[in-house]
Design a protein around this nucleic acid. Structure first.
Lengths: 131, 131
DNA sequence: AACACTATCACGTCGCGTGAAAGTAC
DNA sequence: GGTACTTTCACGCGACGTGATAGTGT
């Protein structure tokens, strides 16, 4: 059961990312298309689409691209069957650290949201006073 | 009862913004120091500190600096005693629009937070599996 | 005379946006 | 042979970071 390969346009549509962004992520080493067509078109499988969706969910956490790559690589190492035990260990450590800081970022985000909400409410009140 | 004037360093400390950012905001027309010292040092009163804190609360909403300026100007127009009625009306309209879109941004932020939380939880689970 | 603080350039960075010119065809 | 999609440069942008160099003194 082989899955159809998608061009970059369809991938962009399905992930909500721009063509430019998808290409940029490739350049930065976050993803690689399944293969290229004879003419050079990037062709993606559902695996990459899933990965891109993951990256998109990650974005609000504010990690830099290098960090995202490191995180993804650590995950890859853990999930690969042929990883050396030492590499697996290192990857697990790294991932644990990222899990920690992800949690912290979520807390920061929550606080920012509170402030933004405060501001929005204040603005709404100011506007309401003008009736 | 006169309040002490602060140099940019103290202002930065009190607001959590960098010197560069405070200067940049001035260049972009968001704030103006109360006055300058004879030697050219920027001197701020508590009014500007409050304004900078407001701007900082605003930031997570993702408005562009031009929009922030417009918003702040509209507020200024409304709060000024000597504003012409027409200007006051226009300002009120603008402010109402910004209040609207601020509300929308808060909702967007909330959604992003949800996704970030999902990602963080997933990561935590993946790490937990490795015990 | 020394020290901390601040001033103004001006170039660098990051994550893309946005054409332009040319090639490809799930 | 026309249309829609894609390719690779390559410059632009917003919101600052980061020195360098020189002046100030809440």
């Amino acid at each position: 059961m082989t899955t159809r390969l998608l061009q970059i346009g369809e991938v962009a549509e399905q992930t909500g990312l721009s063509l430019r962004t998808v290409r940029y992520y490739e350049q930065m080493g976050l993803i690689t298309p399944e293969r290229r067509s004879d003419g050079g078109f990037r062709l993606y499988s559902s695996v990459q689409v899933t990965r891109l969706r993951l990256i998109k969910r990650m974005k609000p956490l504010g990690f830099h691209i290098d960090q995202m790559r490191e995180l993804l690589e650590a995950r890859d190492t853990l999930h690969a069957v042929d990883s050396a035990p030492a590499a697996r260990d290192a990857a697990a450590h790294l991932l644990a650290e990222y899990a920690q800081s992800a949690n912290q970022r979520v807390r920061d985000l929550r606080e920012q949201l509170t402030h933004a909400q405060d501001f929005s409410d204040q603005l709404a009140r100011e506007v309401a006073t003008l009736t």
